[in-house]
Computed example of a mutant assay.
Amino acid sequence: MASTTPSQATSFTTIALASTGVILTASLAYAFYFDQKRRSDPEFRKNLKKQHKKISRQDQEASKAAERSQKDRIRKSVDEANEEGFPKDPEETESYFMQEVARGEGMCSDGSDPVEAALCFYRALKVYPQPRELIGIYDKTVPKPILDILAEMIAVDPSISVTGSRAGSDAGSDKVE
């Protein structure tokens, strides 16, 4: 009886190793077959190229559709923000500015929706008296993807003047005393 116990354990190990060997051999044989077919069969290569082109085309179309939908979303967000309006009172404007900048920074740090984060910075920019100066600050502090979305928002809204007119800083220089 002592001789039957070790042979059963050996036969299980032998069966497991043999099964693993057969599976491994079949996998390698299929890999060699596929490689040989890929290298020598022109029709097979043509089909692979067609599949690759088809997948590439689908990826390009999907990325273009995603880009269009994001641009539409940006336009819609800017239009909604302009329809809501902005505060006119200086104290309300200051608190609104601080609130929107804080919301935008919070959204940037927690990884929220980048369009919403950019919209917060856009709203703050709309009420800031010197937008060009604020854009310079944003350029140093806001992450690049959100800054790119903000640039698209600024391009959509022609009412934000980002050109360099410094009328307020040189107002008294022409006076002679």
Rank of each mutant, 00 (worst) to 15 (best):
S3N: 14
P6D: 04
S7Y: 06
S7E: 09
S7F: 13
S11F: 10
T13R: 12
T14R: 14
T14V: 03
L17E: 14
A18D: 06
G21W: 13
V22T: 05
I23Y: 07
Y30L: 15
Y33M: 13
K37N: 08
K37C: 02
R38K: 15
R38N: 13
S40Y: 01
D41M: 15
P42V: 15
K46C: 05
K49V: 03
K49Q: 11
Q51L: 15
H52Q: 14
H52R: 14
H52K: 15
I55Y: 06
Q58N: 03
E61G: 02
E61D: 09
K64D: 06
A65Q: 12
S69N: 08
S69W: 02
S69H: 10
R73T: 02
R75L: 06
S77T: 15
V78F: 14
D79H: 13
E80D: 07
E80K: 09
N82W: 03
N82P: 04
E84C: 04
G85F: 10
G85Y: 07
K88Q: 13
K88A: 15
K88C: 07
T93M: 05
S95N: 07
M98Q: 10
E100P: 00
A102I: 02
R103P: 00
R103C: 01
E105T: 01
D113L: 06
V115L: 15
A117W: 07
L119P: 09
C120S: 14
C120Y: 02
F121N: 01
Q130T: 13
Q130N: 11
L134Q: 11
Y138K: 08
K140N: 10
T141A: 03
T141R: 04
V142G: 02
V142N: 02
P143I: 12
L147S: 08
D148C: 11
D148M: 12
L150Q: 08
M153W: 15
M153T: 12
I154R: 09
I154S: 03
A155S: 13
A155V: 05
D157K: 04
D157N: 09
P158E: 14
P158C: 00
S159I: 08
S161M: 03
V162H: 01
V162C: 02
V162S: 01
T163V: 00
G164T: 07
G164L: 11
S165Y: 09
S165W: 04
R166T: 09
R166H: 08
R166I: 11
A171D: 04
D174H: 05
K175V: 00
E177T: 01
